[in-house]
């Protein structure tokens, strides 16, 4: 009978468990941000895969990034179908979307001297997380790894096994989609209407 799948030597076992405990909060947050699957299941599957390939980790210092790659690849395996779906929003049919310019044109806070900052300030943590989940998975993963986890574009390319140029385009599209979804979310949830009304109310212009 061969060795049990996933059985490690006692020193490797201790090292892996220590790494898993340390990285657990970050892995769980990453799983939640990637979205679309049960985060707890995703972290468990990631750790099981890590256990099976622990021998491939030569340097424990590289453990956090190694786990990030495993978790991201597991997520991609689970979301294979969704990742293939075409984006329903056409690519830049009227030129690049710029939230900065849309805010300027729509001017949701007419009395503000710090218009753009005020618009961003209207988004709570909950709102930003919601917006992130509205970005299609294939772009969301690039945003999360690059701008939340803080990996370089080259590292993201390596993790996603994509050419750097492809990842740069993916990131560009991801930022555009994030900005579009922020504006759409603000409209749907009345985020800016309510705040603008509040601003007017403070100035005694509502109902007067």
């Amino acid at each position: 009978m061969g060795p049990m799948v996933g059985a490690l030597s006692s020193s490797d076992r201790a090292a892996l468990r220590q790494l898993a405990r340390t990285e657990l909060p970050r892995l769980y947050a990453l799983a939640r941000r990637l979205g679309g699957v049960d985060p707890e299941d995703l972290v468990q599957e990631c750790l099981l895969r890590a256990c099976r390939s622990f021998g491939s980790l030569r340097d424990l210092q590289a453990g956090p990034r190694w786990l990030t790659t495993i978790l991201t690849n597991t997520w991609r395996d689970w979301l294979r179908k969704e990742l293939r779906e075409p984006d329903e929003v056409p690519v830049e049919e009227d030129g690049p979307f710029s939230l900065y310019h849309v805010i300027e044109e729509e001017d949701p806070f007419p009395y503000s001297d710090t218009l753009h900052v005020d618009v961003l300030g209207a988004f709570s943590e909950h709102d930003v997380r919601e917006v992130l989940q509205r970005v299609p998975p294939r772009y969301r993963v690039a945003l999360v790894l690059r701008y939340i986890e803080g990996y370089s574009a080259a590292e993201v390319a390596e993790m996603l096994e994509r050419p750097p140029g492809t990842v740069m385009s993916q990131l560009h599209r991801a930022r555009q989609r994030f900005e579009q979804e922020m504006w759409r979310y603000a409209g749907e949830s009345g985020l800016l209407v309510g705040a603008a009304a509040g601003e007017r109310s403070v100035r005694g212009e509502v109902g007067s």
């Binding site: 909060p25 961003l120 988004f123 992130l132 994030f178």
Partner: peptide
Amino acid sequence: RELRGLLRTRTGIML
């Protein structure tokens, strides 16, 4: 710069 900061600081998730 602000938007990038917002993405980093307002997506916190507790375990």
